[in-house]
Amino acid sequence: MGNFGRGQLVTVFGGSGFIGRYVVRRLAREGWQVRVAVRRPDQALFCKTAGQVGQVVPVAVNVRDQASVRAAVSGASAVVNLVGILFQGGPQRFDAVQAQGAANVAAASAAAGVRALAHVSAIGADPQSPAAYARSKAAGEANVAKAFPAATILRPSIVFGPEDEFFNRFAKMALLSPALPLIGGGTTRFQPVYVLDVAEAIARAIENPEAHAGKTYELGGPRIYSFRELMTLMLAEIGRKRCLCSLPFALASLQGAVLQSIPFMRPALTVDQVKLLKRDNVVGPQAAGFAALGITPTALEPILPTYLDRYRPHGYYSRA
């Protein structure tokens, strides 16, 4: 990877999020000066502890605002874009954030003479997808490739780790409910990928830009699981027995329509998320992945016990 990066500035959009905090930590450890570009810098102050005094600096930016994006990339040698949303609300729309926002970051990076750009998308990004989320991800990729042809695009499957939105969400549900829903019967397949592996892939993409310029990598763990298998594994880990109830897609869509219409609440399920679950979320058979980046992905089973213990009947001291 050479010396590219040490002492140079990298701007990480969405650097205080789940994946972002690990990217910031990885880059700071290798000597980068890290600018954490987020909407609420006051909520990203914890990122500063990832480096030495003054090495990691949160700044205010909104990817929907071109002027703030240009300011955030000024002077940067590399840029990472991790910004994304799981549901729409107010001005935070899929197209505005994941399509146009990606275009803003890529165009500003090109204009600023940035050497490397890593854009994080998602497996399932498809302009023909029935889900607006996946269509906007595909549009974002296309916009990035047009504005910054040398960008590296990374598409992870569901990402697991201490702050994840997947296992923590369902483990919390298991504390309160005697049953967990298996939308579509739980047959949708996933390839869970460890957050530290994703962070390493992003870092390698920008630290060796010539090798990864213009390439797309799909990031999945070493094993594929059905939704039912993942719920069974999670319940075994937290030591709780719950009924796994199949929920037809049609009924789940109706439930999502009701939940997403409740004002001032983060919806537990949306119609668009149900549409996403109709397609498997696994690495394509011809896609380049971790092997092309020189990374061996981490298995799920050894990691889950390190952060799901809080959901066990007696916490850390339980035996799941």
Rank of each mutant, 00 (worst) to 15 (best):
V83W: 12
F166K: 03
V69I: 08
F166C: 09
A37C: 04
P285Q: 06
V59H: 13
H314T: 03
P263A: 05
L82D: 06
A203Q: 05
I85N: 09
V97S: 04
Y311L: 04
V120T: 08
Y317H: 14
G54W: 10
Q33W: 13
A151S: 04
V282S: 10
G184C: 05
A125M: 03
P127F: 02
Y133A: 00
A203M: 03
R242S: 01
A78P: 15
S129P: 06
E163Q: 08
I153K: 09
G17D: 00
I123L: 14
T216N: 10
A179C: 04
R319V: 03
Y22S: 10
P222W: 04
I85Y: 14
A299P: 07
A199F: 13
K241Y: 08
A102Y: 00
D164A: 02
G220N: 04
G186Q: 03
G161D: 06
Q100F: 15
R169S: 10
F13C: 03
P248D: 11
V53Q: 10
V271C: 11
V79P: 10
L230G: 14
L254C: 15
F160E: 07
V144K: 05
M173A: 14
Q286P: 03
I85K: 08
L300V: 04
K278A: 09
A236C: 04
L196S: 06
I123N: 06
G20Y: 10
Q55V: 09
V10L: 01
A131V: 01
A288W: 01
G140C: 11
V24L: 01
T296S: 04
A142E: 15
A179N: 06
L233V: 11
Y307N: 03
K275R: 14
C245R: 14
D65S: 08
A257N: 00
L154T: 05
L269D: 11
L233F: 01
R26F: 15
V80F: 07
A151D: 04
P285N: 02
